[in-house]
Amino acid sequence: MMVAQLSGGADLDFYIEGYAKFELFGQTLYMTTTHICLAIVFVIITAFAIIANRAIKKADVSKAPSGFVNVLELLVETLDNMLVNTMGAKHGLKFSNYIGSLFTLLLVCNLSGLLGLRPPTADFGVTFPLALISWFMIQYNGIKYQKWGKAKSLFEPIFLFFPINVISELSTPVSMSLRLFGNMFSGTIMMSLIYGLLGKIAIIWPSALHAYLDVFAGALQAYVFIMLTMVFVSNQIGEET
């Protein structure tokens, strides 16, 4: 009774809903909440990229940067410093494309809960492909830089450890994607519980929860995702500094 009075008639809405249904090669596919939110995120990122590109092209090289260009340079320098610190000066900057775009996508996706969207990263179908891409890059770099040492490392310390080593390699994408998914989905559930069950008295104080669950957890998980990718790749490259 109490809950019904407080909720104001709103319902829980953390489910992924299908909006449009279509057939493709005999499969029934849905246009879900995730697709729409991802499309909005893509529009935001593309608009930001176009504005940033214009600002950089218009910037005067002879003068010190100011305003928006300054912020952009700060972002790029922070990214480059992080890559060099984590992966070494020799290999670090080669990965700035992938790491930078991954971080931008994850950050905007995680923060999109603030816009009232359902964060696309709260769908396992988004995080698992991202983790798989990272995992294939990790394995590719391992084979590229270690050659046969990569195959040999599966049999260390003795050959009996082969199944355990294979499982530990295969569990990397699962744990990376589940970490991101679990954090964002738990935040989504918490916020929908607050708004669904306490809809009438959820006036200003949920913003504190938004600050923790969306901003802090979202930014931290985006950072952790790219940090783990960098650490794994530099482990596979296997050279100091």
Partner: peptide, 22 residues
């Protein structure tokens, strides 16, 4: 940064339990 990274990795087992519950 080291602490936050370690904490995020330590969180994984808890998230496995959370996923099973979901």
């Amino acid at each position: 940064t080291t602490m936050l990274l370690g904490q995020a990795v330590a969180e994984t087992t808890g998230l496995y339990g959370f996923t099973v519950a979901l």
